[in-house]
């Protein structure tokens, strides 16, 4: 067992544990905090894979941005309505079955195509590679994504607008 394996095991434990707590904790606010931990753990996995750029973006967008917005939504809705919103689901058995089935499918797919055990070394600067491919080869999907976001934003503004 080398240091990387140990680090991966620890991160996996944090990730799975916090992900379980996201769905199992009864307090909505605690669930969001566990989600923040899970997203930070994902950034840790990216770091292990030497994808520093992705790790930083993960922190900046998900752990920083998305969590902030989710928390904001909770506070605005929960405190104004005056009753706490529960987020647990009584159909835990069915949910567990679906999750197990998904794990089975993924495990099956991994077993069918054995992954190379050693990671191929990076040939170039990953940050540069990401930047170049996004602006050349994947420019169209990138722009389409931006368009999708604008559409979502416009939709949100439409619904949030006071009726008059």
């Amino acid at each position: 067992m080398n240091a990387e394996t140990i680090a991966f095991a620890a991160l996996a434990l944090v990730l799975v544990g916090s992900a379980l707590m996201v769905v199992l904790s009864t307090n909505l606010f605690h669930a969001v905090l566990w989600l923040a931990l899970a997203l930070t753990g994902t950034a840790g996995i990216f770091l292990l894979l030497e994808a520093e750029f992705l790790a930083a973006v993960q922190l900046l967008l998900y752990a920083g941005g998305i969590i902030t917005i989710v928390v904001f939504a909770i506070v605005v809705t929960e405190r104004l309505v005056g009753e706490s919103i529960t987020q647990t689901n009584r159909r835990i058995v069915g949910g567990g079955l679906v999750a197990l089935a998904l794990v089975g499918i993924i495990a099956n797919a991994i077993a069918d195509s054995p992954l190379p055990t050693t990671r191929p070394p990076l040939t170039s600067d990953l940050t540069r590679a990401v930047g170049e491919t996004v602006l050349t080869r994947y420019a169209l999907p990138f722009e389409l994504l931006a368009l999708l976001m604008v559409a979502a934003l416009l939709g949100a503004i439409y619904f949030a607008r006071p009726d008059d």
Binding site: A36, F53, A55, V57, L59, A63, G64, I67
Partner: peptide, 12 residues
Amino acid sequence: LFFLAVSSMEIV
């Protein structure tokens, strides 16, 4: 990028 990403975690 590390600086910006980590400092945005402060809000949590």
